[in-house]
Simulated assay, not measured.
Amino acid sequence: MEFGDILFEKESGIATITINRPKALNAFRRQTLEEMIQAFEDAGQDPDIGVILLTGAGDRAFCVGGDVKEWGPSGYDGSSWIDIGLPVIRLQEVIRSAPKPVIAVVNGYAIGGGHVLQVVCDLAIASKNAIFGQAGPKVGSFDAGYGTAYLARLVGERKAREIWMLCRQYSAEEALNMGLINKIVEPSELMDEARNWANEILRLSPSSLKMIKASFNADTDHIHGLTQLAFGALNFFYGTPESLEGHRAFIEKRTPDFSEFRARGERS
């Protein structure tokens, strides 16, 4: 199985999926997501695999969300009324539905859509230099499904609203304190610690773990419907002047001016 945007390895019961676009801070494009979906489905169905690790190449970023170079005048190419042109929903679904634990191994920036990826994983271990946060309202975008509703389950609704409504960035220590991640380690120890956790999981009953994960998911499966609605709305929003202003400002490295849309929101 050959991939261009990711690395996919299996060893001793552990599958490791690595987003391999370090020059783009591991931002994902359609190809990246399609390859990740294929790898997750393969690992999820492989009876020799008991744990899946998700990480990013290099030491700067886990993932910073969608690649802005793939963004056009009305959003990402190939969009439909329930799809922004990137199969983000499908990837989130396959991570949640994999019948074995998925551990996010966060080695740097986890921002925007990349932050949501680590949110939907079952567990998360981060290096001390990891940075977490959302950026949607800064750039004319949002994730009003798992990125909001499920995030609130992890950190509490008040903190989740802060994360989205202020678009601040948070250190690994802050992420640990709010319940966003499970553990912090030195960067040089990150993958070793992730494999230690994976090996500990491999000593447990796989059928029990499968049913436990399904039980946790059942409590929040309604968020899937919210996610579909949210991405449908996001597709429409990407074609508005308000969203375009956020995107242009990001590309031009300036502060966006959303003032006219605050006064005339019905025209955006």
Score class of each variant (00 low, 15 high):
Tyr238Thr: 06
Ile103Ala: 02
Leu117Met: 10
Gln38Leu: 13
Ser79Val: 05
Leu91Met: 12
Thr148Glu: 12
Ser207Gly: 06
Phe8Cys: 07
Met1Pro: 13
Asp122Ile: 09
Asp219Phe: 11
Leu204Ile: 07
Cys63Lys: 00
Glu189Ser: 14
Gly265Tyr: 15
Glu266Asp: 14
Phe8Arg: 02
Leu244Asp: 05
Pro206Phe: 11
Ser74Pro: 01
Glu9Lys: 13
Met1Phe: 09
Met211Lys: 12
Phe236Ile: 07
Gly179Val: 03
Gln169Lys: 11
Asn177Gln: 12
Ala194Ile: 10
Met211Leu: 14
Arg90Asn: 11
Phe62Leu: 01
Arg254Lys: 15
Ala15Arg: 06
Gly179Arg: 04
Asn107Val: 07
Leu25Lys: 00
Asp192Cys: 05
Ala198His: 14
Glu193Ile: 08
Ser80Pro: 01
Ser259Lys: 11
Ser243Met: 04
Asn26Phe: 01
Ala160Pro: 01
Trp164Tyr: 05
Glu260Gly: 04
Gly140Arg: 04
Asn129His: 12
Pro187Asp: 15
Glu189Pro: 03
Ser74Asp: 14
Arg30Tyr: 07
Gly50Phe: 13
Ser171Ile: 03
Asp143Gly: 05
Phe237Pro: 03
Gly108Phe: 00
Gly65Trp: 06
Ser243Pro: 02
Gly232Val: 06
Arg267Leu: 15
Gly179Leu: 03
Asn20Gly: 02
Ala198Gln: 10
Ala104Ile: 05
Phe40Asp: 07
Tyr76Asp: 00
Leu209Pro: 14
Val106Cys: 13
His115Ala: 13
Pro87Trp: 06
Pro47Tyr: 08
Gly56Lys: 00
Tyr238Leu: 13
Ser80Asp: 14
Val64Thr: 15
Phe40Pro: 04
Tyr109Arg: 13
Tyr76Cys: 09
Ser205Tyr: 13
Asn182Val: 09
Gly225Ala: 09
Phe250Trp: 10
Trp71Ala: 04
Ala172Ser: 15
Arg168Ala: 11
Arg161Gly: 07
Trp164Gln: 09
Ile19Ala: 04
Arg248Gln: 14
Asp46Gly: 04
Tyr146Leu: 06
Ser215Thr: 15
Gln92His: 13
Lys138Leu: 15
Ile95Arg: 01
Val185Ile: 06
Leu7Ile: 10
Phe250Gln: 09
Pro73Trp: 09
Glu186Asp: 12
Pro99Trp: 09
Pro22Met: 00
Arg267Met: 15
Asp59Tyr: 09
Ser208Phe: 15
Gly112Leu: 02
Gly133His: 05
Phe261Pro: 05
Ser12Glu: 15
Pro241Gln: 06
Arg203Met: 14
Thr16Phe: 07
Asn199Cys: 08
Phe40His: 06
Ala104Gln: 05
Ala15Trp: 13
Ser207Cys: 04
Arg153Leu: 14
Met1Glu: 10
Thr255Asn: 04
Ala130Glu: 03
Gly147Pro: 14
Pro22Leu: 03
Ser208Tyr: 15
Leu151Asp: 02
Ile14Ala: 11
Ile17Asn: 03
Val120Asp: 06
Glu189Leu: 14
Met165Lys: 10
Glu34Phe: 02
Leu54Asp: 02
Ser215Val: 09
Arg248Asn: 11
Ala160Phe: 00
Ala57Trp: 01
Leu154Ser: 03
Cys167Val: 10
Glu186Pro: 00
Ile163Ser: 03
Glu93Thr: 12
Ile201Lys: 02
Arg254Trp: 08
Gly44Ile: 11
Arg60Trp: 01
Ala172Asp: 01
Phe40Cys: 10
Glu93Ala: 11
Arg158Ile: 09
